[in-house]
Design a protein around this nucleic acid. Structure first.
Lengths: 96, 96
DNA sequence: ATTTTTGGTTTATATTTTAAACTGCTTTAC
DNA sequence: GTAAAGCAGTTTAAAATATAAACCAAAAAT
C-alpha cells in the first residue's frame, strides 16, 4: 500500500499548507501579513486559521495595535510535529 | 508570495496523487490493481480516474480479458509533465 | 437455477473550499 | 459633526470536491 492516505488532511490543503509552512519559519505572524504572503482572501484565511487553531496546530491571539484589532498566529508544538510529519511523508512518497 | 497556489489541484489530492505516482513508475496498470494498491473504493477510483483522463493526464482503455471487463490506465506525456512539475514545486516549497 | 462475485459506473450525500456579505470600529472628507 | 470610505476581520451561503452507497451487467459458484 503506497499510502498517501495518512497524509494529514488538515495540512494537505493549498492554503493551510501555505499557512503552516509560513508559520514554521517564523516566531509568529499577523493575520494581515499571512493574508498578503499567501494571497488568500480574508474570509478564506479566517476559516482556515480557525481550523488549524481548533486542531491545536496553531495558537491565535487577538489583541489590539493602537485601536485596530490585531490577530497573531503562532505554530504550536503539536503543529510543528504534524507539519514535520507531513513533510517527511510526502518527501518519502515523492522521492525520485 | 510563497505560492502553493500553483500546485496543480488536479494532482494535489490524496487519491489522484496516489494514482499518478503509481502510474508514473509503471508502463500501465489495471483498474483492479490500482484499486488494491491505493486502497480506494471502486466508486471513488472510477471518478478520479475519469478526472485524470478528462484532464489528459492518463489514458484509459476499456477492453476484455476473457469475458470480464478490463480497464487499463496509462500515464500520458502530459501527465508525466504535470506530475513532475507538481513534484518539483512541492519539493521546492517544502525544502528543509 | 438462483445466489454470489467480479468489474466496474452512476447518483446521492457529506465535506471542503471559496467567495460574498456583513459587523464594528476608525479615519478621512466634506 | 456627520456622512463616506477603510481596515481588520467574521459569518453565511454557494460552489466545488471527495467519498460512499446503490446500482448494473455479465460470469462463476453452489
Amino acid at each position: 500500500m503506497s499510502d498517501f492516505n495518512n497524509l494529514d488532511p488538515l495540512i494537505h490543503s493549498q492554503l493551510r499548507l501555505s499557512i503552516m509552512s509560513l508559520l514554521i519559519s517564523v516566531e509568529s505572524a499577523e493575520f494581515v501579513y499571512i493574508k498578503e504572503k499567501t494571497g488568500a482572501s480574508a474570509g478564506n484565511l479566517s476559516v482556515q486559521v480557525d481550523k488549524l487553531s481548533t486542531a491545536g496546530y496553531i495558537e491565535v491571539v487577538k489583541s489590539f495595535r493602537g485601536k485596530k484589532p490585531l490577530t497573531t498566529c503562532k505554530i504550536t508544538k503539536n503543529g510543528v510535529e504534524a507539519f514535520e510529519n507531513y513533510v517527511n511523508q510526502i518527501q518519502q512518497y515523492l522521492k525520485p
